Amino acid sequence: MEQYYLAALQRMSGIGSSRIKALVDYFGSARQAWLADQGDLFLSKCLDSTSCNNLLAQRDKIDIHKLAESLLKKGISICILSEDDYPALLRNTYNPPYVLYYRGTLPADDKLIAIVGSRKATAYGKNAATMLAATLAEAGVGIVSGAARGIDTAAHQGAVGKGYTVAVLGSGVDVVYPPENAKLLANIAESGLVISEYAPGTNAHPRQFPARNRIINGLAHGVVVVEAAEKSGALITADFALEEGRDVFVVPGSIFAGSSKGANGLIKQGAKLVDNASDILDEYGWGSIANSKPMPNLSSEEQAVYNLLDYEEPIGIEEIVTKVKVLPARAAYILLQLSLRGLTVEYSTQRYIRAAREGI
């Protein structure tokens, strides 16, 4: 039950990882800290008077056994800093979370790379993130990101079904944010890991994302930035990476795009430019990319539609109908077939791009 006493302590406002550690060190266990009387808590000097009084006032309202039962019903597990299965790279960072909540499976090793970037990503950025994540995942590298809109989502989508991916949330692991990622997070929990330092039920809030970013960085050997404006969360993650001695990689963006100013600036500062997964695999000696899968045989109509598509600029179905000279229903069917073969991506409603694939 020790982990559930830790979870209860972590729910108290004003008691973060450092104070939980101090309490456990002083009292010998989270249970003893939870049950300590007022005098002993004040004498420990682990808490200020406000946090101490808050703990005394709130703890009688929490039934530890009901808390444990609730977490188990939701499929939520707890990992503690002192346990062997706590992620090794994260453990060695400056301020690792003392308590982590998760759904799914903790990483079996530290062969992990983070991919982060703009929430307002372009088709180019999403395509690049998806391609890198898919290729790295197929090579046995776990992909870490924050499940936010844009680049984060593209990275997770690239890795799901290809290998292992970790979604680090700025909310409780039972809170879906953004809402449209409900299915994606469910899939990640089945084959990868959804993890957070925030107690279940905690809603997402902007002030929580910078702290979440330090965990994204802490889990991985390096961070790949794909599209980042001059002031963005991705750059905060890169800053954390540099502070922790992690590597920073950057996918170069257009010199005319504001969404790439920050990313390109990192290259000027010495970050390593990457344009394929081999750049990352070679950096760590993690092997090589398997031979690219051959292009599927396409019918003449399918080939015509595929040739019309671009890697960066989405094309609407109306333009495809006009240029290929097919009926709208036929164009939609062709695009569906190309998508099922992993050759196209619907960037927005009925606007399509060619899916990037290494070696093509």
Rank of each mutant, 00 (worst) to 15 (best):
H156L: 09
Y164M: 07
R246D: 07
S13N: 15
A332I: 00
I115K: 05
G158I: 10
A211P: 15
R212T: 12
R330E: 13
L90A: 05
V160T: 13
P210I: 01
L71H: 04
A36W: 00
G104C: 08
Y101G: 09
V194Q: 10
G201E: 09
P206K: 01
G265T: 06
A182P: 04
A228P: 05
G233E: 04
R11H: 07
A159P: 15
D84A: 15
A159Q: 09
T105P: 04
I115S: 02
L327Y: 10
G142V: 02
A234S: 14
G222D: 12
E69P: 15
A228Y: 01
L71E: 03
G75K: 03
L71R: 01
A355K: 11
A114F: 01
G140N: 06
L55H: 15
P294L: 05
N276A: 12
G161C: 05
S145A: 12
Q208T: 08
D239P: 11
Q208H: 14
N92T: 09
A332Y: 06
E313I: 15
N187L: 09
G16D: 02
N127P: 01
I280S: 03
H156V: 07
G172A: 05
Q10D: 14
N181C: 11
Y4V: 13
N297H: 11
D239M: 00
G258W: 10
A167W: 13
G117A: 09
I289P: 11
V225T: 04
T130K: 10
V324L: 02
I195G: 08
A114G: 06
D85H: 09
N307Q: 02
A189C: 01
S171R: 02
I334H: 03
T50F: 15
L47M: 08
S254G: 07
N187I: 04
D63P: 08
T93N: 05
C52M: 14
L9K: 00
D25P: 12
A199V: 12
Q3W: 02
D60L: 10
R354N: 04
I113Y: 00
R91C: 04
V168Y: 08
V223G: 11
D37C: 07
S18A: 12
E244P: 03
D239E: 11
I15T: 07
A211Y: 00
G158N: 12
I315V: 14
G104P: 15
F256M: 13
A137M: 04
N213S: 08
V144H: 00
R354Q: 09
S278A: 14
L336K: 13
L185H: 11
T50H: 13
Q303H: 03
A355P: 03
K61W: 11
D85W: 00
A290P: 12
L298V: 00
P179Y: 15
D40E: 12
K66A: 13
T135D: 10
M12C: 15
E302K: 00
L41H: 06
I143T: 07
S77T: 08
Q38N: 15
K111A: 07
A148Y: 02
T344I: 08
A355I: 05
D60C: 12
A356N: 05
D63I: 04
V251Y: 05
A238C: 05
M295L: 14
M1E: 14
G285T: 04
V173T: 07
S288G: 14
